Simulated assay, not measured.
Amino acid sequence: MENSPLVSVCMPAYNADKYIAEAVQSVLSQSYTNWELIIVNDGSTDDTATVLGQFTDPRIRIYEQQNSGQCAAANRAFSFSKGRFIKFMDADDMISPGYIAGQVKRIDNRDDVIASAAWGRFYNDDTSTFKLNDDLIRHDSKPIDWLVSSMDGKQVMMQCAIWLIPRAVLEESGLWDERLSLINDFEFIIRVLLYAREIRFAENSILYYRSGLPNSLSSLKSQKGAQSAYDSINWGTSQMLAFEQSNRVRKVCAACFQNFVYSFYPYHKALVNLAESKVKELGGSTAPFLSGGYTRLLQSVIGWKNVKKLKFLLSGGPK
Rank of each mutant, 00 (worst) to 15 (best):
L6V: 12
D140F: 02
N3D: 12
Q54E: 12
R138W: 01
N215Y: 15
K87D: 03
A202I: 07
I95R: 00
S116G: 10
E22P: 00
A229Q: 03
N3F: 04
R106V: 14
L217D: 14
V24I: 11
S8G: 06
Q30C: 06
V27A: 06
F85Q: 12
L193K: 05
S263G: 08
K87V: 15
E244A: 13
S173C: 06
M1I: 10
N124Q: 13
S222I: 13
D108H: 13
I86V: 15
Y63F: 15
Y265P: 06
L271K: 00
V51K: 04
L207V: 15
R59E: 08
L274N: 14
A101I: 09
T56W: 06
S181H: 10
T45P: 02
L217F: 14
K154T: 07
N41G: 04
A196G: 09
C253Q: 02
M94F: 08
Q25G: 04
Y265G: 01
S246F: 07
T127S: 07
S141W: 03
V113R: 07
P166K: 09
A115W: 05
A91M: 04
S31W: 01
S149Q: 09
I107F: 08
E64Q: 15
Y123A: 09
D111H: 10
H139V: 05
P288S: 14
I233R: 04
I86D: 00
V192K: 02
P166R: 09
S277Q: 15
F55H: 08
L37K: 03
Y14Q: 04
Y99K: 00
N67G: 12
S81A: 15
